[in-house]
Design a protein around this nucleic acid. Structure first.
Lengths: 356, 356
DNA sequence: AGTATATCTGGAAACGTTTCCATTGTCAAA
DNA sequence: TTTGACAATGGAAACGTTTCCAGATATACT
């Protein structure tokens, strides 16, 4: 009893428009499958006439190469993973949007991994690496910092990694900003505006949940501010500095406290825009007005900051995502990260709006 | 000259820990590949002893099945796509987070497609369908509404579809809310609080860019509000209704206008929470106070609404995403959507906070 | 014992690409 | 005319699973 391995080719199912394969295209164009593959992948090794025929066949059949097969054979997925904590924080979303934008323009897909607890990171990384479901991985914020270089080495990930919004270091490419310098800039701006009594509303780590690297960007920005105040011979007053959860409501409470002091500051630097919104709410509650009664400057330049007319320090959130994706794609194309892309610092700019 | 197709198996490369395949596991456990596959997929057709051996081998080798191969062979990707407009709107992000959460718990990956212009939708859908890179597609908001049922039929998508936040209709499963009823609820709440002069800040479609279905949820919520006012015998005053872009700044301007009228309303219903924040800003600017001078109620119950102490209409954003994902997974498992899941309305609730 | 039945297992074929090698055709130089 | 180099092409093998069928083993019943 002979078997007919090709029986599917003429089976009844095919009358219902089986999605076309490269073989169908080859047949239709009267060429071999190899040639079709070469056309699809833009190899120069194809005569113009042939290429034309193939392209026509592709169009007529509405063929589109099957990703899984492509990946299995070639080892490439045309997919980049993004792993992020706190999907709902506006700053992460903006970076994500930047990444998405670049990947989309290069016909790469974006797989989103979201982590609720840093402890999940390791498991997730292993999974991702083992399944080979993505060509590369963009890691947002501190997630990678939860590992020592040694741990990371032992995990022996084959995947190209790039970190966006990550402390400067030497172990993998990353894009970062100088938070301390940013803090200095914010303070400098306020000082130039004539303020001498400057407060701060920031974020403390309450648990290991938030950041295991020991420092939040809030702390660094605070440090920069203090440096600048000292350097300018201005008073540092511990009463004016308050820390809480990273949300508007908490910030509002901190600000209410600060602004109710008998000797209150004339300006407040909020570590994130989100906190600044809370500070603005407090100012409004107290029937004060910024910038006249109290000036407010934020940090991040989130989308909403422009609606809210918040003066803030821009850190190119969207662009950081774009760059991360761009460098990753280059890495995937050329096989290695450009040395210039290993350690990329983004410039900060004070954006003057209505609040300070 | 004989060839050795299996030469790779003993090539030098293997000393560098080639990622293990199902064959390696089979060998190590002393069983056939079929058995390993059955173990991985939880088939009951495996003796306990055998299963144990296989599981051990899997653990020892750190094996994890290759997604691409799995898909190519079985036709399944363990991946669900999400297609969304305006990635950066907070309400979309919350729905997305809900989807992500459910998928993650079921070991499904989430591929994110973002659309900048509704016209891209069709191309994107075709691409996604053709590449077979996802098992199903969750469509957010109005994107599918840009097609007539006829168009959609002609596109002949093989992919299971479910829409989240989509007008009720008959062509595919969807999860929705009754925006008109929501508008009525908001108005009713304000009326119960004693307000008789109620304003509205909403969103107009400025271009085809935003929504091609003819109605925004803002318009529907407005309709509901008017119905309720009429029904309660309260005055409708066109002066109190203003429409603009869907951002806080624009809403602030509209509210400033309304609240500066000689005969101003004592309460304002904002079509989205984002707009409500703008209204609150306006109230603060005018040195008024909610809820005493002007009450404000929003709609959506975005995360920030709770920080901002905004009274609003909750529409279960996160949960809508969870449900969409859940129903999709069920569809993928059982082969069809449950009839109950074809047309799912989510309940709305007024959340009383400090603003009204 | 012998037979029927149920359970468990091994392994080939198939999924749709890419890649590599062999073959053919073309053109220029000798 | 012959030779060599090179461009263009066809098609087999490989990628790592799942599925299906056949065979093996165990169990139950006569």
């Amino acid at each position: 009893m002979e078997t007919f391995p090709n029986i599917r080719k003429i089976s009844a199912n095919d009358f219902f428009m089986r999605t076309p394969t490269i073989r169908d295209v080859a047949q239709r164009a009267g060429v071999g499958v190899g040639t079709v593959s070469r056309v699809i992948n833009g190899s120069p090794q194809v005569a113009d006439g042939t290429r034309q025929k193939v392209l026509e066949a592709i169009a007529e059949l509405g063929f589109s190469p099957n990703k899984a097969a492509r990946q299995l054979s070639g080892g490439k997925t045309s997919t980049v993973g993004v792993i992020t904590p706190f999907l709902t924080y506006p700053s992460f979303v903006e970076r994500l949007a930047g990444i998405q934008d670049v990947l989309d323009h290069h016909d790469y897909d974006l797989v989103l991994y979201s982590i609720r607890h840093p402890q999940q990171t390791q498991r997730k990384l292993r999974e991702i690496g083992a399944q080979v479901a993505v060509d590369g991985l963009i890691v947002l914020s501190f997630l990678l910092q939860t590992f020592t270089p040694e741990e990371l080495r032992r995990m022996n990930l084959k995947l190209p990694l790039i970190a966006v919004d990550h402390d400067p270091q030497d172990y993998y490419p990353h894009i970062f900003i100088d938070n301390v310098a940013g803090g200095r800039m914010a303070a400098e701006y306020l000082i130039k505006k004539g303020h001498r009594k400057i407060g701060f509303v920031g974020h403390v780590i309450e648990s290991a949940f938030e950041n295991e690297s020991g420092f939040t960007s809030s702390q660094r920005r605070f440090k920069g501010m203090k440096e600048m105040l000292l350097q300018s011979g201005l008073p540092l007053n511990e009463e004016w500095y308050r820390f809480g959860a990273p949300n508007e409501y908490s910030a509002c409470e901190q600000a209410l406290h600060i602004l109710s002091l008998p000797n209150r500051p004339t300006a407040i630097f909020a570590a994130y825009d989100t906190l600044a919104f809370g500070v603005q709410a407090a100012i409004d509650k107290l029937r004060m007005k910024s910038p006249d009664d109290v000036a407010v400057i934020g940090f991040d330049d989130v989308k909403a900051a422009s609606y809210m007319r918040l003066t803030t320090v821009n850190q190119q959130l969207f662009h950081s995502g774009e760059l991360g994706a761009q460098y990753m794609l280059e890495r995937l194309k050329t096989g290695s990260f450009k040395p210039d892309h290993w350690h990329v610092e983004l410039a900060l700019t004070v954006i003057e709006r209505a609040s300070a």
